[in-house]
Amino acid sequence: MLFVNKLLKLFGIITSLGMLLVLLMGAVVTKTGSGDGCGNSWPLCYGKVLPEAPEIETIIEVSHRIVSAALGLLVIILAIWAWRKIGHIRETKFLAIASVFLIVFQGLLGAAAVVWGQSDIILASHFGFSLASFASVVLLTILVFEASGDKRTPHVPKRIRFHLYAITIYSYIVVYTGALVRHTGASMACDKVPFCSDGQLLAFSGPQGIQMLHRTAAVLIFVWLLYILIIGLREFKNKGTMRTGIILAFVFICLQALSGILVVVSNLNLFLALFHGLFISGLFTVLLYLVMLSLRSGRQ
């Protein structure tokens, strides 16, 4: 039994890392313009597993499809395995169902983008569901680790629970504004920070409006998390999990903001853009974990 539990933990870690890889590979597909690497052919690429003498865009797109399909299988195995082994933990069944649904649905959205055209809304939704899928797998893995130790159920005051619920929802909205920036080609619509362009602080229409909408939304989430950090440090002096989680969330938003600035300054450096996606993935996952702890507290 102990060996099986260790194996499940290892499998959860591998699957979580794999989901992060899928998320980053999706960002590479977008940043390199490889979404049309297989034309409108799906699941095959121009009717083949891999066309002869493929272009780099085709290789990137096919690689993303293969890794996504493999991770889909791993997520299904993890969900079933966790359901059977730790189904007694309250959140397990919900996260197992959510992880399978989200990985399947994001695959269908990706297929729809290929077959029926890559509209901005579909592409933005695809990233949003990919992020939620990654977070659900990570949380399910955390439950696997909790099953072999003490279940964390800290007391979270109602005021802080409200802020955590609200900012998690809001952060997901901010993710969509960022996805729209990428998929509408507005990433460099404003080439100055904090100004949109020389002498222009704000913009309200077109690509510049989309860019400034995302920046304004990002500033708000930074200020909001700073406020949560201040009240959280005062409230959770002796509660390590909540305290650490809130600090980690603020660190992620700082790194997210810094990477976003550097992406503009570097004129869309691919490496920095991937880190930008990595940090928002970490932030959203940490916030969801804090929400899970808060829900437990609310049921006490």
Rank of each mutant, 00 (worst) to 15 (best):
F204K: 07
S197Y: 04
K93T: 13
I66F: 04
S259Q: 07
Q118I: 02
L274C: 07
V138L: 08
G282C: 04
H183K: 12
V144C: 11
V286R: 04
L220H: 11
F222C: 12
L102N: 11
A96L: 05
N267T: 13
V265Q: 11
I167T: 04
L287A: 09
I210R: 02
S205P: 02
G245L: 10
Y46R: 13
P207M: 05
I14N: 12
V114Q: 01
F94D: 00
T177V: 11
L73R: 00
L21V: 05
V49H: 01
H155E: 11
T15M: 05
I253F: 12
L139K: 00
A98K: 06
Q118H: 12
F195W: 14
F105Q: 06
M292S: 11
F250Y: 10
F252C: 14
S171G: 02
G206V: 03
R90V: 14
K237S: 14
Q300V: 04
F195R: 06
Q200M: 13
G298K: 13
Y176P: 06
V174W: 09
N5F: 15
W83V: 03
Y176L: 15
E57W: 14
T32L: 11
A203G: 10
L233Y: 07
F275C: 09
P54I: 13
T241L: 11
T15H: 08
A186P: 09
H214R: 01
F284H: 04
I160V: 10
T15Y: 08
L272C: 06
H88A: 12
Y46W: 03
A53H: 13
A186V: 06
G206Y: 07
G149C: 05
R159A: 07
A70W: 10
F252H: 14
H155Q: 13
A27I: 08
G12A: 07
K93Q: 12
H214K: 01
L295T: 10
L139H: 00
F145M: 14
H155T: 12
M25L: 15
V114C: 09
V67P: 01
F94K: 09
T216I: 15
S266I: 01
M19N: 12
G240Y: 14
F279M: 05
I80E: 11
L268W: 01
V174Y: 03
F284R: 03
S41P: 00
E146G: 12
L73E: 10
L164K: 00
H183L: 04
V100F: 08
F236V: 09
E57S: 15
R152T: 09
Y172M: 14
W81D: 11
V22L: 08
L270W: 02
M188G: 05
A166I: 06
G18Q: 02
I210A: 02
L248Q: 07
Y46H: 03
I142W: 09
G178E: 05
T141K: 02
V75D: 07
G298H: 12
Q211E: 13
Y289D: 01
L270Q: 12
L8I: 12
P157W: 06
L10D: 00
D198E: 15
Y46M: 07
H214C: 06
A249P: 00
R161M: 09
S281N: 03
I77H: 05
I59M: 14
R152F: 09
L8Q: 11
T216N: 08
C190F: 06
K93P: 00
S119L: 14
T15E: 13
Y289I: 04
W83S: 13
G47I: 11
I80R: 15
L258Q: 03
